[in-house]
Simulated assay, not measured.
Amino acid sequence: MNKIFRPAAILSALCLLFAGGFAYADELENLLNRQNDRQQILRLFDNGTTTSPAPKKAVAQKISVSPPSPQPDNNGNADELIRSAMGLLGVAYRYGGTSAATGFDCSGFMQHIFRRSMGMTLPRTSAEQAKLGTHVDRSDLQPGDMVFFRTMGRGRISHVGLYIGNNRFIHAPRTGKTIEITSLSNKYWGSKYAFGRRVKKHDSARFVN
């Protein structure tokens, strides 16, 4: 068995000698004289082969991303106000009206939703309501702000609505109409726009101009 194996081992060693250079010649010669020639030659072949180690796989770093902090609700109970107002869509306009049963005018509509949502009693007319809270520029309007209009020329405030976002407001427009959502980009209402006011539930500024 060993006699049969030795020529094969010698042949393998010679192949290694010429393929890998003479750096291992002495070691190969010694190995051929041992009984475990084949195992040793193969081990030498493995050790003498210069191959670069496989690159380590990059370990993905876990990046902790914090969710965006919720923006403060600058309008106090804006969600409640808008929800209350939206629930009255379609209610008829009525001059001097202050209830859902008989209809609303613009300021009566504001009185109703502020009382229902924030427990606040607003003045009766839009001109008086325009003195509450703090002034807000049109570019800074936020949902829940009151928006005022001069529908009778450049004189006093004569109309009010509730800003609900996306350049829209909800209001009781006029006789023959119902509570509806209108864009501030509307040609008529855009030309009559005066300013916005922000009224907070727990802000004393709502009582002063």
Rank of each mutant, 00 (worst) to 15 (best):
H171I: 04
Q40I: 04
K62H: 12
D140S: 13
A23G: 15
F109E: 07
N30P: 00
N47G: 00
M120H: 12
F22V: 11
T175P: 05
T49N: 01
I10T: 15
D37C: 13
S185L: 03
D73N: 07
A60K: 13
D37E: 10
S99R: 09
S117I: 10
D79C: 02
M120Q: 15
Q111E: 13
M110P: 02
E27F: 02
P53M: 08
V208M: 06
R83E: 12
I179P: 00
G96K: 02
A25V: 15
E29M: 14
P173Q: 09
I82W: 05
T102A: 11
W189D: 01
R197C: 08
T50W: 01
T182D: 00
G21N: 05
L81R: 05
M152L: 15
L184K: 04
G90C: 08
Q39Y: 04
P68W: 02
Q61H: 07
V65W: 03
V65N: 02
Y193G: 04
R197W: 13
K56L: 13
N186M: 04
H202P: 00
L122K: 09
M86Q: 14
L42T: 11
K3V: 10
I82H: 08
F207Q: 03
C15K: 05
A85N: 11
G196D: 10
T102M: 03
H171F: 03
P7D: 15
I4H: 10
L31Y: 13
D145V: 03
R150W: 05
A130M: 07
M152Q: 14
F195P: 06
A101M: 09
L184V: 07
G144L: 01
R38F: 10
R38M: 12
N167D: 12
S126L: 04
H202R: 08
S191N: 09
N33W: 12
D203G: 03
